[in-house]
Nucleic acid binder design. Structure first.
Lengths: 231, 231
DNA sequence: CATCAACCTGAGAACTCGCTCAGAAGACAC
DNA sequence: GTGTCTTCTGAGCGAGTTCTCAGGTTGATG
């Protein structure tokens, strides 16, 4: 099977590298460029399956670029990236069809999730499934819904992201540093105690419904989401 | 099969030598440098499979170096090394994809284990297996779980590291000095009596479940993990 | 068989790590 | 604006862990 091709367009090298590494690790084939002109060229040549596009670029804005791409017959969906303070109307009207947008700073795991969500809606060939189920816990990634033994659980956004990351890596110990870097925004500058806090929140909500604890502490190592049954 | 190539970047010659020797013995092809500039050069030339990178170097910090490497298209995973007292935010945001980090002082066996864990997740070709099984005892290195005849055994971090080291060298006598050097942190300053203590702990937990003792004392020499059956 | 060194093990002191709570600050909706 | 939900921090507590030590046991040696 061919790897899904992602085109990254952002003028900040930091963000480009962060995204490239993270997406490559997630199994995508990545190409990154730094301005609008290169983006148009790369999109024509590379035939990407999805484009990550910074709304404000030095040479062109998001609207011009998408207009140009569409006129060239390139209809790959676009995930727009925008700074938090950029006004909403910069984005409004851009996301047609399967497009979506997210504000910087984002968490790396969230980008992967959003890309998969878009591809799920766009492509007929469903490589990634919206349902992630491990043991007694089930997540619907499209609806952001969580069920434990068919009983709905209400989670905050961060709680949800943490649970998803743990479940994606079920039965594998994750260090707090890894969790912090994947689940929290990339410019988060705090202590790892926050991971402990959120694990505590999750357990309080999940463990009352499960037969046995799902998040295991590996003292001195990290945390692990455990499924009793092979999955 | 080609040996996995490791690039070590640390300004302390002591640490460089320690790591070089240990990793070479573990079967890796090693190249070590002492500053950021050399690291970038070596990474480009040598095409390493994994990079061990001290976060604080005289000429560049970890963030600059990874940024530089990623922008050059080098996406080998990085295992960051950092002093325990360095503030957490030096590390935050560094471990993307399959990266991880560990604090100095570390134990040499732990470094090898972490490298293998990263390569296991990163490379699709699974050269190293997460399961280590000798005789009646089985270790899952991803989950840090230990089983004796399919019965779970709960071990402390040090107990776990000691058992893993013994099993990696099954049917080979290890001196207490060797064990101390590999399992304990490299700046450990205590007596060898501690090895005896931990062997005692292990035996207490393991031997009640095995048909015959698994850790044999070779009086005047050291210890040996014994597997009755060839493995 | 007596002696000595090597080894085993239990007890305990000091410490580290993770859990939880309470509260401040911020985001968001109405 | 006002109230609610959420995020994040810091402190205190308790359990688990590390390490040392001392007394008991084992085994080698002459």
């Amino acid at each position: 099977m061919e790897a899904t091709k992602v085109l990254i367009v952002d003028d900040e090298p930091n963000i480009r590298d962060l995204l490239s590494t993270s997406l490559r690790f997630a199994g995508f084939s990545v190409h990154a460029v730094g301005n609008g002109a290169d983006a148009v060229f790369a999109a024509e040549k590379g035939a990407p399956d999805i484009i990550l596009l910074d709304v404000m670029l030095p040479d062109m804005n998001g609207f011009s670029i998408t207009k140009k791409l569409r006129s060239m017959g390139i209809d790959a969906p676009v995930l727009f990236l925008t700074a938090r303070d950029e006004t909403q109307d910069k984005v409004t009207g851009l996301t047609v069809g399967g497009d979506d947008y997210m504000t910087k700073p984002f968490s790396l795991d969230e980008v992967v999730a959003r890309i998969n969500a878009i591809l799920r809606r766009t492509k007929q060939s469903q490589i990634e499934d919206a349902i992630l189920e491990v043991g007694e816990v089930r997540i619907n990634q499209d609806a952001h819904e969580v069920f434990v033994n068919d009983e709905a659980v209400d989670l905050s956004p961060t709680e949800y992201k943490l649970l998803r990351f743990l479940m994606e890596n079920a039965n594998r110990v994750l260090t707090k540093a890894q969790i912090l870097d994947h689940v929290w925004e990339y410019d988060f500058n705090g202590e790892m105690g926050i991971v402990e806090s959120y694990v505590s929140y999750l357990r309080k909500k999940l463990d009352v419904l499960t037969k046995e604890p799902v998040i295991i502490t590996k003292r001195g190592v990290g945390y692990m989401f455990k499924s009793t049954k092979a999955n």
